[in-house]
Write a protein that binds this DNA or RNA. Structure first.
Lengths: 229, 229
DNA sequence: AAAAAAACATGACAATTATCATTGTATCAA
DNA sequence: TTGATACAATGATAATTGTCATGTTTTTTT
């Protein structure tokens, strides 16, 4: 069981505003957990008993749509908190969390969060900021999804994947997803993703090597993303 | 200048948690404003100096997409607060607010809100709840927009319009929008909305009388909304 | 009331996207 | 190493949706 005081990940989220005392207390009551790729951290509709702080790995937040397909609403990674709002507002989650890669997470019980909110104004303000950011992100995504063609959405998704998760030394996107998962982000059929990706490949905008994707022409990809191609 | 203590609208949002003292102070520093249909309350990118509390009328929150079309992200009405998150996190808005009908609003300066958050725990918790609701709403909408066909999206929009704004004594939707505005919600071309609406009309799912729309067959509309038609 | 502007409607056609079917190719466990 | 299983690729076809053009109706302005 690692100590919160020494945890670097904490610097990436609202927990950074906690005092030394609060942190040492937190160490004593948090739980450490491992989730293997594909395992579910929590399920849509579940009542969460606290928040999860991601120490490593990538997690997808998904929602089952009426047609039975999983829509990936958000990808989260090191430093992100899961289930903040359900924990704060004491309501069931509207999303399921599934490990995209193996993950290490810390579980922080609800009381601790509620406590921090009621005694630490900095924590509260930081939570407001983080929720505000989350809403802004949703709004932007909504406009993208509503107004863009599938091609533009896919281009935007590739750019987002590199922005948020970086690339390997060979230039390929660090986060490796199946075509089906990409389709879950874009909101289209898997076949459409395959076709569009190979089209991008033929157009030399990206390079495909199995599941490994490298962006070659950023300007062009941005143009496509804005529907200006 | 009306008094906050006697304002009924306040009961509908986080301001209901304020104490008598806080309310009487608020009365002295708030401002009353009128916006005519089509006028803009604030603009995307603007730095807000407080929040707006809607006393009457309907407002659309829009975002200009890369292709130049306005996407309506949300419709707000009596009791809703505008600009809460920008005000709290002190960042520019990501959306523009435009009056859909004539509106009466109260303007509450930023300091008052910040003050309320730092001194009134009930207010803080209520704000968290309201922001949580907002995120959940965005997530749901995102899944709808990403996964559904235009027909299903339009059906969902009609149901939403009746849920959120009610209907007149003749059964028609109380909120009257142009086809272009509906297209801005659905995220499609105006012509497509016109065609789909008249198709719904032919199928006896709705009744069209100019801009006035009545839902006739709720079950069928829900089926269409779920893509089960 | 007339003129102008905005909103609505429809046809024709092209482009995009979904769906179904089939085959090839990795990947993993026994 | 060999099946088994998941993943990727591609073709054919139908359905959906966007775009442009044109005309009508409604609303607003003068």
């Amino acid at each position: 069981m690692s100590k919160c005081e020494q945890c670097i990940v904490r610097q990436l989220n609202s927990l950074k505003t906690l005092t030394k005392e609060e942190l040492s207390h937190l160490t004593s009551c948090k739980g450490d957990q491992i989730f293997k790729k594909g395992e579910r951290i929590f399920e849509e509709g579940e009542h969460l008993k606290g928040v999860y702080c991601i120490k490593s790995g990538v997690c997808k937040l998904v929602k089952l749509s009426a047609n039975g397909k999983d829509q990936i609403v958000k990808l989260t990674t090191k430093g992100d908190l899961l289930g903040e709002r359900s924990t704060l507002s004491n309501e069931p989650t509207n999303l399921s969390a599934v490990a995209v890669t193996d993950m290490e997470v810390c579980f922080i019980p609800q009381v601790e969060i509620i406590n921090a909110v009621s005694t630490n104004a900095n924590f509260t303000i930081d939570m407001f900021k983080s929720m505000g950011k989350s809403i802004r992100h949703s709004d932007d995504l909504l406009v993208n999804m509503s107004q863009k063609t599938m091609k533009a959405r896919l281009a935007a998704t590739l750019l987002m994947l590199e922005d948020d998760f970086g690339k390997e030394s060979d230039g390929s996107l660090s986060l490796v997803l199946t075509r089906e998962e990409v389709a879950g982000i874009v909101g289209t059929a898997t076949e459409s993703v395959i076709r569009l990706l190979s089209q991008f490949g033929k157009d030399k905008i990206i390079k495909l090597d199995g599941k490994h994707i490298s962006i070659l022409d950023y300007d062009m990809l941005r143009m496509v993303s804005d529907g200006l191609d």
